[in-house]
Each structure stands twice: as C-alpha cells, then as structure tokens.
C-alpha cells in the first residue's frame, strides 16, 4: 500500500509546503523509497517493550523556579521584531487568514 500522489499532496498541504506537480512526483517516489527503508521496524514483536522517548536515563521532574527574567532573556522590542518579515507598530503582521482553518480551536 504505497503512498499515492494524492496522499502526498495531502501531507504537503498539512505540512504547509507548496509542491509543484513535478516536485510532487519526486516526493512521492522518495517517500515510498524511504518508507521501504523503515520496514525492519514493523517486523519486530515488541510485545511488552517500553518505548524510549528520551535517552536520558532516569532524569525526570526537571522544573524551574517561578522567577521573572531570572536568566535575563527577555528581548527588547526591536530585537524581538528584528527578524520578522512583516511588522506593524509593536506587532508581527500576517496577511488575511480568510480560508485558514487553524484559526478555530
């Protein structure tokens, strides 16, 4: 059950990466090739094996104190906005969201 170009188009839409038809074709071929490379994962019997999401041994409960700007990291407005492609006044600016779905949560 290889990925079809429609599948890949759907993933590209989700991942917000515009692909040309040609790129879509290449991408589809690549992804199916890559997924073949992953098959060993599916041949395991992993019954009762715990996953390792973090390779950090027993490290847990890492937390920080509730102290304002303890690390002096808060940024001046001009620095905060310095790398933005579009800004207005003190804010970042984006074009119309009309037709965007993410808006509603």
């Amino acid at each position: 059950m290889a990925l079809t170009q429609d599948d890949v188009r759907g993933i590209a839409d989700y991942a917000r990466i515009a692909l040309t038809e040609e790129e879509l074709e290449e991408m589809c071929a690549y992804m199916n090739e890559a997924i073949d490379l992953l098959q060993p994962i599916r041949e395991y019997d992993l019954e009762g094996v715990e996953p390792t999401f973090h390779p950090i041994g027993d490290l847990s409960n890492v937390m920080a104190g509730d102290v304002q700007n303890a690390h002096g990291r808060s940024l001046d407005l001009d620095v905060a906005l310095s790398n933005a492609g579009a800004k207005q006044g003190r804010s970042f600016r984006v074009p119309s969201i009309l037709g965007e779905e993410g808006g509603d949560r």
Binding site: A64, V67, Q68, N69, A70, H71, R73, S74, L75, L77, A80, L81, G89, R90, S91, F92
Partner: peptide, 19 residues
C-alpha cells in the same frame, strides 16, 4: 521566565523561548 502580562504593550514580555 518571561513576566506574565495582561495589559502590557504588545510584545513587551517575550524571549527566544515564547517567540
């Protein structure tokens, strides 16, 4: 460790983490 703000000027309490 950015200050919690409710009515500060836009983008006053921001740092690399929350941006």
């Amino acid at each position: 460790d950015c200050k919690l703000s409710h009515d500060d000027e836009p983008n006053t309490n921001v740092c690399p983490v929350c941006l």
